[in-house]
Design a protein around this nucleic acid. Structure first.
Lengths: 191, 191
DNA sequence: CCGCTCATGTAACTGGTTACATGATTTA
DNA sequence: TAAATCATGTAACCAGTTACATGAGCGG
């Protein structure tokens, strides 16, 4: 059975960190700025056990430190699986637009009155700007530590967030955001 | 219990279409360009039944047409739920970066050799360009039918896809895509 | 000694996926 | 008449969520 996206991502994280505890991996996910990756213990610990069972990760007990913990490292077959995922063809689904619940809301925004549409847009833009600020800090950190690929990925986050913002500004200027509300059964109604 | 994102989206679709069959809603999802929304019968039909049970949708049998089918329409409380979702504050998670498996791959791209990195980027860019072309057709369609909010949403897709593409081009120009491969345990190694 | 972080789990649940089943009607 | 599409489901499964449990060490 093929690995899930989350499994590939954990595999990649263990490769990138080198030998590390489950808790460290967990932190990486819970502290992620991207909500998508904020996984919990209930996801990560069983997943690590799964990858060990499949011999993609190796685990050993660490008694050196103060607290007892299990240290994971990637196995040769794990590295092979990671490389296959990275070098293999991009699944068509991974190239489609990522889900965006703000965009989805706008698709249905005709259902509420113009004043509320505008406040919704302002709210969305404000939150996205906040995300962008946090992102810039992250980028600086990765650049200063020479983590080149992480920096490139974070740049990718920034350009997408900026694109979303500039699009929201364009939406705000659209005539529909001052016009009379359009109702469900007269979708062709024009100003 | 609050509605899921998919439930809100279906609710919105029924509002937008007016009275319609489960199959029509299903088509909307299976034919979506965004992989995220490509739900199957097993998701949509039980979901519709759930919304009917919660009185957010109404169902009636249609015997007029050739094939027997159930027609769904949004109820007053359903419309209220939709409006509350649209006008309510954007959850912080919905404002974070959408997941992007291409970006995730790039985060770990140091694991494969430069030649493979480049071919991966070319592959990703090619597929995203294909998506963009399909998108332009959709935009034209919505513009010509006066579906203003759908057109705005599709514009949102376009700007994000273009941002991803321009970012991929920048990544391709980065020195790491010609340099010697970086390994897991010497992440600070520089050209 | 109280609360926080480190550290590892488990048990119940559930939304959505996969895959199958069924039958009628239209189109080639 | 065969294939495609319309149309509606169900049953098994499973990854990930929610929520809880536990205990050790550390800082104030």
């Amino acid at each position: 059975m093929p690995l899930t996206d989350l499994e590939h991502t954990v595999l990649g994280n263990v490769w990138k960190k080198g030998e590390c505890s489950g808790y460290e991996i967990l932190q990486e996910f819970t502290h992620s700025t991207a909500a998508y990756y904020r996984s919990r213990e209930g996801a990560i610990y069983p997943l690590l056990a799964r990858l060990v069972r499949r011999r993609l990760l190796r685990a050993r007990a660490d008694k050196q430190g103060n607290r007892p913990r299990r240290l994971y490292s990637i196995s040769p077959s794990g590295l092979a699986a990671l490389k296959a995922w990275l070098a293999g063809p991009i699944p068509e689904a991974d190239a489609t637009v990522p889900p965006d619940l703000v965009r989805t809301r706008i698709y249905f925004l005709g259902a509420i009155e113009p004043a509320k549409r505008r406040s919704m847009l302002r709210d969305a833009a404000k939150r996205i700007r906040g995300q962008l600020a946090a992102n810039r800090r992250k980028l600086k950190h990765f650049e200063s530590t020479g983590n080149v690929f992480a920096a490139l990925a974070v740049e990718g986050i920034s350009v997408v967030m900026q694109a979303r913002l500039s699009w929201l500004r364009r939406v705000e200027c659209s005539p529909e955001f001052a016009a009379i509300p359009r109702t469900a059964f007269s979708p062709r109604q024009k100003a």
